[in-house]
Measured scan of single mutants.
Amino acid sequence: MDLSALRVEEVQNVINAMQKILECPICLELIKEPVSTKCDHIFCKFCMLKLLNQKKGPSQCPLCKNDITKRSLQESTRFSQLVEELLKIICAFQLDTGLEYANSYNFAKKENNSPEHLKDEVSIIQSMGYRNRAKRLLQSEPENPSLQETSLSVQLSNLGTVRTLRTKQRIQPQKTSVYIELGSDSSEDTVNKATYCSVGDQELLQITPQGTRDEISLDSAKKAACEFSETDVTNTEHHQPSNNDLNTTEKRAAERHPEKYQGSSVSNLHVEPCGTNTHASSLQHENSSLLLTKDRMNVEKAEFCNKSKQPGLARSQHNRWAGSKETCNDRRTPSTEKKVDLNADPLCERKEWNKQKLPCSENPRDTEDVPWITLNSSIQKVNEWFSRSDELLGSDDSHDGESESNAKVADVLDVLNEVDEYSGSSEKIDLLASDPHEALICKSERVHSKSVESNIEDKIFGKTYRKKASLPNLSHVTENLIIGAFVTEPQIIQERPLTNKLKRKRRPTSGL
């Protein structure tokens, strides 16, 4: 017993010596996670971090007073192994002897410093981030199933929210409404489509400006004509009531908005009720001829604005009016007729031209339509002016008669200019590109209106002035400009410049 007691005391002394060697000089306990400095002193990692955080910048070693920084600290694995072995020896000594260790306080702390507990403390002390800490805590505590279930439920809930957000973003663009038309193969669909197009076009005519009305009406008319041609002859009974509906809707729209509806009346003529396609083609032919005449008058307007600064050229074209007008009339009417003589009366030419125009518009179905009313009214106005011209010709002399006839021709041009508003800008460009020769010939008609105004002003003063002067240069210039014009009389060319000069002198006297 005595020997055993001596041996136990010796073992205890050895353990105490080893414990003092492996103590931390700051906390005076076994080193936890030993860290060595540049001066080869060993301290606990937790104690050194606490010391360095007390001051900004480098701190001093507690043993040798040298500078220490966080970067200079290094882990010493050898001392950590020695500490672990010492703890194992102490545990074995207690089991063999059955005696508690003399320094129970220190031993209890040593026992608490088992490797499992050290790992837990290291995970908390090290600044490795929240995710690494959570992982280490889960690994160190596998015995708690409640914690695992809560963490898994949190992760699953987070994943569910992310997935639901993604699915919502994908589903939202798919919620856009999609309209699908289910059509049938019955023959009544074509008639319904035609009526739908006509009503939609009328609404567009009321909303859209004048520049786009003609294009819309032309497209709708083409669509309706194609649909009529596709149907068989057996379905004509269905077409006639639908066309009557079209007429009623167009008349109502014309009564409500007459000014807006006139812009599309000329282009919509071939959508009118037709028994066969031949009647629609004839109407299209007549409309094309009318559009040609209207576009020519538009060309004359532009030329008149350009040549208004040259009064000499405008005056020299006075007698070329009849010849150029004959050529335009021959090209406007498709019928083959002989040219009228140069010395014939211009009023007779106008009456013949009106007689040619009237039969074209005397179809029984055309008179029933609303768009032809505008053309009939313009023709009636022309006839009224010609009836007035006959009365004026009986009273005035030959020279005054010529000037009045020219004035009436200008009035006719004004009437025809009203129809110019109905034609589109695209048709003007096509006419100029296809028929430049006709445009040059028809330019002379509009330029002549300037000389007509001068004659009217001469009649106000009650006299006409003449001068025997020749202007050969002007006649040559005008002959080169206009290709299809005829030779003019030299006496009238000489008379016109004198009248304008005298007018300039006598205007201030009349004002006084």
Rank of each mutant, 00 (worst) to 15 (best):
E116H: 09
I124W: 06
Q60E: 15
S76K: 03
A108W: 02
S76M: 05
H117I: 10
N112M: 15
Y179L: 11
K110H: 14
S186D: 07
L73V: 03
L51V: 05
S114E: 15
V14R: 02
Q148N: 14
Q81R: 14
T37E: 01
T176S: 05
N66V: 13
Y101G: 04
Q74E: 08
Y179N: 14
N144G: 08
P58L: 15
G98K: 07
K168L: 11
Q81S: 02
E100K: 13
S80T: 15
A102M: 04
S153D: 07
D120F: 03
R136E: 03
S127N: 01
E84D: 01
P145M: 07
L182P: 07
E141H: 11
L182E: 12
M128F: 07
C39Q: 00
L138W: 14
G98C: 03
V35E: 00
R78P: 13
R131L: 12
Q174H: 12
L28P: 01
M48G: 08
K55E: 09
A92H: 00
S127Y: 03
T69E: 00
S151A: 03
K88F: 15
Q169S: 12
C61K: 00
E121L: 03
L95G: 02
G183L: 08
L52A: 06
D189C: 09
P34W: 01
M18P: 00
K38Q: 01
G183W: 11
S104N: 08
Y105I: 08
I42W: 06
V122E: 04
E188G: 11
R163S: 13
S177W: 11
G129A: 10
Q74L: 01
M48E: 01
G160E: 08
E111Y: 09
L147Q: 03
R136W: 15
N106I: 02
R131T: 12
K38E: 15
T164A: 15
K65P: 09
N103K: 05
Q60G: 07
N112Y: 14
L82E: 00
E121D: 10
K65F: 15
S151D: 07
Q148G: 05
E188I: 07
V11G: 01
N158M: 02
F79L: 04
I89W: 01
L28S: 02
T37D: 04
E149Q: 04
